[in-house]
Design a protein around this nucleic acid. Structure first.
Length: 496
RNA sequence: GCCCCCAUUGUCUAGCGGCCCAGGACGUGGCCCUCUCAAGGCCAAAACAGGGGUUCGAAUCCCCUUGGGGGCACCA
């Protein structure tokens, strides 16, 4: 870094209402990057004021997701910190206090209108083709009357007293000034009748109290962004730098991902949920690299990044405001790249669970021998299983028709297998340097092509038409098994 | 319906007035390498939504149209 920006305090503020998806992951990543590159702090705050939408386990999934991605936070519900508590459900009184400050300064008012009356008003407004708005009934109440009704125990909410005239201008770091006519804004509810604050109030209060310098959030907040600016100004607070990230579109580029489409995606081996991606064999390194580039870019030729590179190179000045369609084939590409960047030891550790899960009795030690020849052949970790399953089987069962070498008869094929057995039998072991030369010589002398001979031997030894390189594979399988499988193939071919 | 945001190849993007008859990446096609599959190397096709301005000069600035997205809750 050439210059030294002030340490940024950034927050990731999800609501625990469902699975952690790619959009959240990207926001959290950018938060982390900004905090780390400025030597600031990354705060996790749980926005759980709406009990109705609370999903058990969602908070834990969020934390697991962040941990898996390697984007750790400095302050949070489970870590504590100087500005806690970090769960909004534990901050009710704080919001109450600040809501009343707004009432005292004339920036907010009590509203006693019933939901039924409001619904009726909205309906009429829509009939008249007017934008739905609070009609201002309680805004006109005198302070004394309102307080008397509150004291009498009447059910009420607290609304923000939005200016009726003029315009409000707020500044988004990627879009510049955004100006709206105040009459298009509503007297938004700040505190519900059950006493809980809504996002508009709670988030502004927390961001201020937690000394947040940069708010990175989704562009779905753009419509209420002016309100948030107004609330900060009503309190007399300095506003953070506002950064509204674009949304992710479905791969077709048409619209946001729906629940139904998410289910379809899984069938193709893709998902927008972080926990699924992990199970589908993607590496956190690849996911991080991939999402970092959806809405941000470094220059016109560098795309491969590890987290530490991103901390150094990321910049909020190179964010793109337009929506981005999710491109899963690019994730596959990055996954392959990051898999190949892993050490053989590390890769072995990562693929082992996929074998175990499939009931294959692989151990770290025997898998470790295979890993090197698997490495450049997989796009996802789970692909190692079908690629290498035959190493762990006692016997393989090649399809008879696949045993017949290309362009040969069964009889000729059997002759090839027999010759192979004859050549390999006297060898002390199946080491690459022992097995390959005589086979090469045989191919040379026989008039068959390498493809014909090796292709058929491959089927005999691995049971598959596609496998890692033949001689490397045979060495790992071992002479005894190889010979047994070849003899079995000769039998099959003989009976055809 | 109203409000807000966005607009470069199929997709992600570089470009912030002349370096651009537009660069990179994924994907696609072809070739090379090759025991299969990959990986790798080389090559190719593929875009500035449309119309007006401003300017000596516009992908880049302004306006309109169109298209896309988001929002209009006592959700976040």
């Amino acid at each position: 870094m050439v210059d030294h920006p002030a340490p940024a305090r950034v927050r990731f503020a999800p609501s625990p209402t469902g699975h952690m998806h790619l959009g959240s992951a990207r926001t959290a990543l950018y938060d982390y990057l900004l905090a780390h590159q400025t030597g600031g702090q990354f705060v996790l705050r749980i926005e759980d004021t709406d009990i109705k939408r609370y999903v058990p386990g969602a908070e834990e999934e969020l934390m697991n997701g962040l941990r898996w991605l390697g984007i750790d936070y400095d302050e949070g519900p489970d870590k504590g910190g100087p500005y806690g508590p970090y769960r909004q459900s534990e901050r009710k009184e704080i919001y109450q206090e600040y809501a009343h400050k707004l009432i005292d300064t004339g920036h907010a008012f009590y509203c006693f209108c019933t939901p039924e009356r409001l619904a009726r008003v909205r309906e009429e407004q829509q009939k008249r083709k007017e934008p739905p708005h609070y009609d201002g009934t309680c805004r006109r109440l005198s302070k004394e009357e309102a307080e008397a009704r509150v004291a009498a125990g009447e059910s009420h909410v607290i609304r923000f007293k939005t200016p009726k005239d003029g315009t409000t201008t707020v500044v988004d770091h990627l879009r510049g000034e955004i100006t709206v006519e105040n009459r298009t804004l509503d007297d938004y509810i700040l505190v519900k009748s059950d006493g809980w604050a809504l996002y508009h109030l709670a988030a502004m209060v927390d961001d201020h109290l937690m000394k947040i310098t940069h708010v990175i959030r989704g562009s779905e907040w753009l419509p209420t962004f002016p309100l948030h600016g107004l609330i900060c100004r009503a309190f007399g607070w300095e506003e953070p730098v506002w950064i509204h990230l674009s949304v992710f579109l479905k791969p077709s580029g048409k619209g946001k991902m729906s629940k139904r489409e998410s289910a379809e995606l899984i069938k193709d081996g893709y998902s927008i949920f972080v926990k699924d991606l992990r199970e589908l064999g993607y590496t956190p390194e690849a996911v991080v690299n991939w999402i970092s580039l959806m809405g941000w870019s470094y220059d016109d030729h560098t795309e491969y990044f590890e987290l530490k590179d991103l901390v150094e190179k990321f910049s909020i000045d190179h964010l793109n405001p337009s929506p981005a369609a999710i491109n899963f084939t690019k994730l596959d590409h990055f996954n392959g790249l990051h898999i190949r960047a892993l050490s053989d030891d590390e890769l072995t550790k990562r693929i082992l669970p996929f074998f175990t899960e499939k009931g294959i009795a692989a151990t770290y030690d025997n898998l470790r021998k295979i890993t090197p020849i698997l490495k450049e052949r997989m796009a996802t970790l789970d692909e190692s299983v079908p690629l290498a399953g035959f190493f762990f089987q006692k016997e393989v069962t090649p399809k008879p028709e696949e045993l017949v070498a290309k362009g040969c008869t069964a009889k000729e094929s059997q002759a090839i297998v027999l010759k192979t057995i004859e050549l390999l039998e006297p060898l002390p072991d199946m080491k690459l340097e022992h097995a390959e030369p005589p086979m090469r010589e045989y191919v040379e002398a026989s008039g068959f092509s390498a493809g014909q001979v090796f292709g058929m031997v491959r089927v005999a030894v691995t049971g598959q038409k596609v496998s890692p390189p033949l001689f490397e594979s045979m060495e790992i399988i071992g002479k005894e098994k190889v010979m047994r499988r070849l003899k079995r193939a000769a039998e099959i071919l003989g009976s055809m």
